[in-house]
Design a protein around this nucleic acid. Structure first.
Lengths: 218, 218
DNA sequence: CAGGAAAAGTGCGTGCACGCAAGTTTGCGT
DNA sequence: ACGCAAACTTGCGTGCACGCACTTTTCCTG
């Protein structure tokens, strides 16, 4: 059911994607991230430059994707794996934290590379939006009595919160003014562990999850 | 206080931006949106093409910006204008609905144009992210006792919800599968008035606002 | 097992985003 | 008033995203 027919076609496609990911990351590490052209990545992966961006919309996306891999799917799976007994809010939070803190050795080094270049950081942050569709699916499964949009809104909010957490984790202190963040007098100094950031960012959403959950099972 | 010194410099800058907006929209309406090159817009506004994209990162952004204008600021102002007595969740919801449904005649026609081209729709949807920073500021002002991230997370969630509402308002029925939306059996058919969509999308977030608000004034 | 439809890959051309290094205007201090 | 420094504009060059039309590969069905 999970894999009805991989199909030769689909497998070659994934192989090509993987080759591109790999080539992009390797080249970016060897020379600087700036010193890698799309042409180089395509050549290293053995496809044409045109094919390259049938797979990736930007050069940065390919590099980041080697780290990100299929994090979206893993998060969704981790939520689904949790018992329906636990609070949905907790299931989501723990799944997210778990998937973002379990970083392999290679991923750790790649992340270090990413933080050096602002274009790469942006691409990395943008990648968090990808968790929305699969997360919508698992949340909707737990809330099948709820309003149509609810699951999507919650999933999108989680994505936004994760993005914020990663953002303030990547920049310990933004030197310039933070565009409307210094609202009520004092300035914010969030800095902390990644899992701490994630939990803090997701916490404000818990009441929304609770309310949605109680709508279906009163 | 609101306008310490406009300054000649700043006024010319805004005039240029306005001229570009105007030219972009006018040309897009006259010929099709596809038949407008950056060069044309720049020429019509009396600046160089290079200057054009000191102001706008993409061609679509310029066109959309003529409709969007300073909606972000107006939403934030509309929230701030509401009494501190009313529920924050309601203040935000009403401010958003108010600013999105008060469309001038010209804006209405421009919106019609936008819906015709997918690149324009995307740019229009992306523009909703701009409400986050000003919204963060006004929310933070109402929640000054709360956790640092809370205001940002709530503002970002609102932006996400608004995006979802606009999205499903722009496409009455997405013909293909909606990437993980058909989770629990039946398929969704949201379609409705814009204000209805907005309220429905924002409703699930209300509990989160309430909880945050009670943290500061118990 | 053939034949044809659908999908993936490719070559080419066009317009664009953006860095860089001038040139030009605005603003401010002395 | 003068001139300097910062902000804005502009020309140029490079790499890139993406549409289009065409070839090659994969898959399905009679």
């Amino acid at each position: 059911m999970t894999t009805p027919r991989p199909g030769l076609r689909e497998r070659k496609k994934q192989a090509t994607r993987e080759a591109l990911r790999e080539a992009a990351l390797r080249l970016a590490v060897e020379r600087g991230p700036d010193q890698v052209r799309v042409e180089d990545i395509a050549e290293a992966a053995g496809v044409s430059p045109r094919t390259y961006n049938n797979y990736f919309a930007s050069r940065e996306q390919a590099i980041v994707s080697a780290v990100t891999a299929d994090r979206e799917a893993r998060i969704a799976a981790a939520v689904a794996a949790r018992s329906a007994e636990v609070r949905l809010a907790d299931a989501v939070t723990e799944a997210v934290v778990e998937q973002y803190t379990n970083a392999g050795e290679r991923e750790q080094r790649a992340l270090l590379l990413i933080t050096t270049q602002s274009a790469l950081r942006d691409a990395f942050l943008d990648a968090t939006a990808d968790i929305e569709p699969p997360l919508t699916a698992v949340i909707a499964e737990r809330l099948d009595g709820a309003e149509a949009h609810t699951a999507r809104v919650l999933a999108a909010s989680v994505a936004a919160a994760v993005r914020i957490a990663l953002e303030s984790w990547l920049r310990p202190a933004q030197n310039a003014e933070t565009a409307g963040s210094r609202a009520a007098g004092g300035l914010v100094v969030p800095s902390g562990s990644l899992s701490g950031q994630l939990r803090a960012a997701l916490a404000p959403l818990a009441p929304a999850f609770d309310a949605a959950e109680q709508h279906t099972q009163p």
